[in-house]
Design a protein around this nucleic acid. Sequence first.
DNA 1: ATTCATGCAAAATCTTTGCACTGAT
DNA 2: ATCAGTGCAAAGATTTTGCATGAAT
Lengths: 154, 154
Amino acid sequence: MENRLDRIKKQLHAQKYKLTPQREATVRVLLENEADHLSAEDVYLLVKEKAPEIGLATVYRTLELLTELKVVDKINFGDGVSRYDLRREGAEHFHHHLVCIECGAVDEIQEDLLEDVEKIVEERWRFKIKDHRLTFHGICHRCQDKKASEQKQA
Amino acid sequence: MENRLDRIKKQLHAQKYKLTPQREATVRVLLENEADHLSAEDVYLLVKEKAPEIGLATVYRTLELLTELKVVDKINFGDGVSRYDLRREGAEHFHHHLVCIECGAVDEIQEDLLEDVEKIVEERWRFKIKDHRLTFHGICHRCQDKKASEQKQA
DNA sequence: ATTCATGCAAAATCTTTGCACTGAT
DNA sequence: ATCAGTGCAAAGATTTTGCATGAAT
């Protein structure tokens, strides 16, 4: 964990930004909640637990900065808010998401899976791909199981 | 064009909704600007040209209704606004988008391309896919050409 | 009459901005 | 002394909601 924080610190320094206590607290929250997909408000509340003096605007500014540096990716699942997701280290591309329309859970797919598709798109549409967003909406395995056992009950 | 309007009318009636003049004007705007990716505000301004008495709230309510009926898809390219995109008739899945980070143009890919990927996701993650969103961010062929000719100039 | 839909304005959200202030170089 | 970074409050932008009115059955 410390390693990743240090690495992020270096990324900031490389662009002449400082890792202030507020920024560090924000990054720590992101690292500690990597599996979640926190909104700015979510991050704010979590940071506030450890550093109560921080302002929401600072969180927004930090998240914007981290997005610029590609430390996090800003995503939108269609509810009204932006969410922030840490990039995995060494990940070439942004990972994909599975959004469950029953329970709202968001699972991640780290595998690329799009290599072939991207090759086709680059060739056939002559489009130079820099980034992508892929989200599937459907029913997660947990909700499928739950339904199946409910069927059995009846 | 009339055919599609009629078909949408039937979809509304099937769910006990009426195609009011305001809704019809909104649908017409969507049909006439199918290539674009209009925000609610965009739609509102275009509808207003033909039916100046319409209110913005009605446009929002109509777009929400059309989204529910899967006549349009609501998408978000990361700027702060939702955009509304007509589903192609007979299209099994929502189409994909190419967003140019230079000029902002949004091109569409009607081809599915994801069949193999979806099969893998359904099997390996046991996720029942109902819908998807795939957007590539990069440089469109027009901007690539522009850059190339500028290079030649210099 | 009843019901659904509308227009308008107000409210609710989410996000950004202005500004005075602080802290590190 | 400078300058990036911060907190707070205000402003902005987008979207939703309440309510009186209007249209259609």
